[in-house]
Design a binder for these strands. Sequence first.
DNA 1: AGCATTAGGGAAATCGTTTTCCTTCGCAAT
DNA 2: ATTGCGAAGGAAAACGATTTCCCTAATGCT
Lengths: 381, 381
Amino acid sequence: MHCGKRLQGIGGRVTKHDRSKTAQPRPASIAAVAHRAGVSIATVSRVMNGIENKASSETASRVMAAVESLGYRPQSVGRALRQRESRIVGVLAANLGNPAMAAAAASIELALRDAGFVMALCDTHEDAGIQDEYLAEMEAQLARGIVLLVAVPSPKLDALRAAGRPLIFVNRRDPGAEDSTFVGIDDHAAGRAVAEHWLAKGETGPFGLLHASLAFSAGRHRAAGYLGRLAEAGIDEGSIAHATGPGRHHLEIGYIGMARLLEATPRPRRILCLSDLIAYGVYRCLVERGVSVPGEIELFGFDDNPLNAWIAPWLSAVRIPYEIFGTAVVASLAALIDEGRATTALLNHELVIRGGSPRGPARDVMSQASRIILETKSPGA
Amino acid sequence: MHCGKRLQGIGGRVTKHDRSKTAQPRPASIAAVAHRAGVSIATVSRVMNGIENKASSETASRVMAAVESLGYRPQSVGRALRQRESRIVGVLAANLGNPAMAAAAASIELALRDAGFVMALCDTHEDAGIQDEYLAEMEAQLARGIVLLVAVPSPKLDALRAAGRPLIFVNRRDPGAEDSTFVGIDDHAAGRAVAEHWLAKGETGPFGLLHASLAFSAGRHRAAGYLGRLAEAGIDEGSIAHATGPGRHHLEIGYIGMARLLEATPRPRRILCLSDLIAYGVYRCLVERGVSVPGEIELFGFDDNPLNAWIAPWLSAVRIPYEIFGTAVVASLAALIDEGRATTALLNHELVIRGGSPRGPARDVMSQASRIILETKSPGA
DNA sequence: AGCATTAGGGAAATCGTTTTCCTTCGCAAT
DNA sequence: ATTGCGAAGGAAAACGATTTCCCTAATGCT
């Protein structure tokens, strides 16, 4: 359909090379260390955990020497069992194929590792069933916390929220509660800023909007900000063509939605796409029809994933600072675990404007005066 | 440098909303289930694990009813501790920002989940230190196996290999052993196929090659196949301009490498890039200089990640079937764990040819007669 | 009848940690 | 001289599962 002709079907060849199955020698346990150091396992544990006043420095160094010589590393499962809490933090991403989410995941992973956690990353495909499966699994793993990189409503999610487990919602707010911990941008202000940008350039439209489901916070707020600002400028909401596509696949939503939008009269010339992937779908649709971008139709995306700068010089976008999401998530997690405080972190977005002439340099033009609204409490209300 | 002008620095605002810290009610344990069902915990365990001949059907249904009513789900840590093996499979990816790796990770995750495993995904940034850190952590987690989605040599890797732990190398072969389990394509044949494609079209060059480090199997084999076929056609290896860039970031390698290649005489007109990301870097370099792609310079990439079809109509590529990597990885893992057999799975690659005229449709043109060589045992030797 | 086998199920050991009690010792304050 | 206290460290109890021994009936086979 949308993939090129292939030269041959899938398949392949598997060759097998035998290999002796050696019995696994057990790795050194805390008992082995204790024995070699001539102390009890309690002391080893205390030294390993840096507990003061429980071991003389002489004993401690003896223990450390034993640890060193045996290459001992505590098994996480033993500790997790005893403490009823592991160092795993589950990160449930809606779609790893989206470079923006991959960027967020990479950032979160880095920050978690710095903080001594271990990330377990999953792909929920934005499906409630799979999300529930993973939520249950994270519970079974005694995960310290769960990060939902775009959540959908699901029964298990409700259960965990009710049980007070540490949940962190990223990009899309908790679909089931107002005051859950959130890390993201001010979507309403960002949507506004795009409209503001076009208005400041003297554009009069026709404007368009392409989006996935508006049932969730991010999309709803972005759309509301965009449409609200246009309305303030006297542009009737009815005159703004908007479309979506079927399903959850943003690429196809953009492709199919754009095809519909092309039939609208008047045909929109400035279109906001609520994600980069939607804009990609739009791009393919327009390229196939010979419509020049941004010559005839100018696009604005959301996310500005790191690849845009390299291969999408035709796409301006609201840049979400995924590279700092990690530290924000970890900080929020700490507040939630240590103090039981749910926080809302609104990170600053930016507008990245690209000229996109196909033959000229991929120059990025600075937009004037796009206000970043920081004070929003309940965006999009 | 390569990112657009920004309208404001990063930063943001954090608001905090208090929330009562409720004491966590413990989830139901196996003891609770046993008590409610009026049996011993041993029986519950046996029922849960479907062990035959150890519980009457009447008892079993009583247990299941108790499980149901308590919402019991076994904690993984307890089981892992006892069995000295968890259901976690570590997947160490070199760079999640690469959509091809994200695609591979997504596929592997799906297959692992089907097989009852849990994926823990990490980003090693292709750094030996970070890789070692994660390898050690996976050991501590009693991971059932470790998948290295592009590995680098590291001490801990040697240690695990020597200890006979289940390691699976994907895309890049084990840098420290010949006969480790491998899942990937026949890189040598793929490199050959690109040369073959161009030769079959009557191209005479000048040809070029852009690559990251050639110290590892994949790149080395691809380059050898490509250059080998060109040499067979009488094209001197010395006449083939090739370049690389500093570091490990393929985007920048492509960008900087292409800048160097532009100074070569004669300037190459057909360039093979050993990854899509390198091709992206090349593209940006050429767009900035006003060189048309594929008009003046034709590019061939490796991977053909799923986004190419949407936004890179100018890029032909060797398509690696990442969507089936998952099943191959799981099959290899099973062979390794259950039978101690190390296997080599060479999956079929394909050539995806794109026309890429910027204004025309993004049509995919079928190439004629690109042989896929299946019999290779030691490619590139 | 005598014996082996199997189904059914419980008690307890086990995995590798952390943590709670203890005990002992030395020293300072009363 | 007695008490109190902190440092140092050991013994043993958790944690939640699986698994190894057991034991008792019942059944099949000679």
